[in-house]
Amino acid sequence: MNEQAIIQDENEIVLDVYGITKSFSDNHVLNGIDLTVRKGEVIVILGPSGCGKSTFLRCLNCLEDPTSGEIIFDGENLADMKVDINKHRRKIGMVFQNFNLFNNKTVLKNITLAPTHIALKELRAKKIKNFFIKIGNFFRKNKKELLIIEKTKKEIIKESNDNAYALLRRIGLEDKANEYPSTLSGGQKQRVAIIRALAMNPKVMLFDEPTSALDPEMVGEVLNLIKEVADDGMTMVIVTHEMGFAREVATRVIFMDEGVIGEQGTPSEVFDNPQNPRTKQFFNAIL
């Protein structure tokens, strides 16, 4: 094992996946996948079309409910129907092949919608709780302390907007803040989608073929942004067909085949010296 891998073994575990399976009626797409994602890792998943890469990624934030298995995130099993999945999804960013920017919202609103909504909801919940504590205190001898409200509604909205503008500035699309997504190019859309996910301060980001729907001349700008975010230390799981990018950015490459992990290792291990005949076959077919 090389030095980098050893350092990463000591890093905290962000996502721990045990024996994930997923079937659509009698189509068994995932057949038992284990994966431990540590902080700072950039895991690239490769594999032939239809092998279940998207399905696996979508299981990680329960956009698809796994048929069996466990996904441990923040000390809870996301596959358990009882956990508050919304709370955890906020910390798992996802970037889709088709961007999925909200068509009915401006670029700025696309970025601020979720953070603002969630912060305001928490504020409301706190205020309601305080209201009941106050009523209780009326009868209590030793008064209970009120929850501290750090930010007002105004401050929450302002902070969320400022943060969005800072992110837009970073990708050079500040002037598009009040435009609708339909006026953006594909590359711009995907970069906005990436910062929309970033605005939630996720612990891990999932990318499902983020450049597959792009015109070739726009692939570069999106890959560069992903690389930048990775260099900042973001933990990532990326499904992509961009082999050069995978080699450059990945700390670990996973080859998936028929719903299981066929092979994994560092980029050089997997790309230069694949052990699994199916991996070799895959590389021969695409190169």
Partner: peptide, 26 residues
Amino acid sequence: DKGQFEAARALGLGYGTAMIKIVIPQ
């Protein structure tokens, strides 16, 4: 497009919020 709903849910918004803010207006 189903992706609109999924993107909202992936950001941690609930079913109702995703419908009211994103899907139903469209």
